[in-house]
Design a protein around this nucleic acid. Structure first.
Lengths: 130, 130
DNA sequence: CTGCATGCAAAAACTTTGCACCGCC
DNA sequence: GGCGGTGCAAAGTTTTTGCATGCAG
């Protein structure tokens, strides 16, 4: 179905190597260091392909542009309301909530995404200084 | 802090009166029937203000534009992967997951948003017909 | 009156797409 | 070779913003 490409591989590797949650722009700039003439369109095309294939995940945080995550194993995210940063949370998968959601619902539920909101450690610290 | 405006009130009322989850565009077109010369900019400004005030909620589904919800009482949403529709789920609030998330996290967690994904009743039906 | 809110339009921010060329299979 | 992938740039979509004017307090 899809053919090898150096650009796609670079994008996948880039995402797997990072635990922050880069935007398309950040991915673009990062890859550019090794493949200087890669284009932003290619980055978007591949991010969207990889995310359909389930090799990466797209995060729509509601703050700023979409972000991408190379970790597909189930895990959850924290989003700082103040600075907009996105952090991984170390917590177990909550499979059981799919069952809760499915009760009294006629459709088919095969997954969930949960974002936790609040203040990140850095912003908390700053708040005390002010 | 903020002054009365007919436009803002209309937007708030419009959202409270509906249980689908309209986009800014839909809100704009809806209000326009009563206030023909309202502008899209005003709609965006007020949606964003109301959502900061906690009077409405913004939903970033990752599929299409942001949507807005006049129901602020805790509840959860289902998003159809196929048609992109957004439905309310009848399920209890899962306060306890904030505690789970806060374990081993240094920041402050004061809320969460969870989206459930799958196929909506209509798309399931359609799939059987094909 | 004073200042927040609005309408309008331009611009910014983000993402997708058409097209000619390139390179994997 | 054939077909999917790329670079480039233009266009599409969604959202924000500057500015002059309007209206609530």
């Amino acid at each position: 179905m899809s053919k090898y490409s150096r650009q796609r591989e670079a994008i996948r590797d880039f995402l797997k190597s990072r635990h922050d949650h880069p935007t398309a722009e950040t991915v673009y700039l990062g890859i550019k260091e090794n493949i200087p003439n890669i284009s932003l369109g290619t980055v978007y095309r591949n991010l969207s392909l990889l995310s359909e294939l389930g090799e990466i995940r797209k995060l729509s945080t509601g703050i700023g542009p979409d972000r991408y995550d190379g970790t597909v194993a189930p895990h959850y995210h924290f989003i700082c309301k103040k600075c907009g940063c996105v952090l991984d949370l170390k917590m177990n998968d909550m499979d059981h909530i799919n069952v809760l959601a499915a009760q009294g619902f006629n459709g088919e539920i095969d997954g969930h995404i949960a974002y936790f909101y609040g203040n990140c450690p850095d912003c908390l610290k700053e708040r005390k200084n002010v």
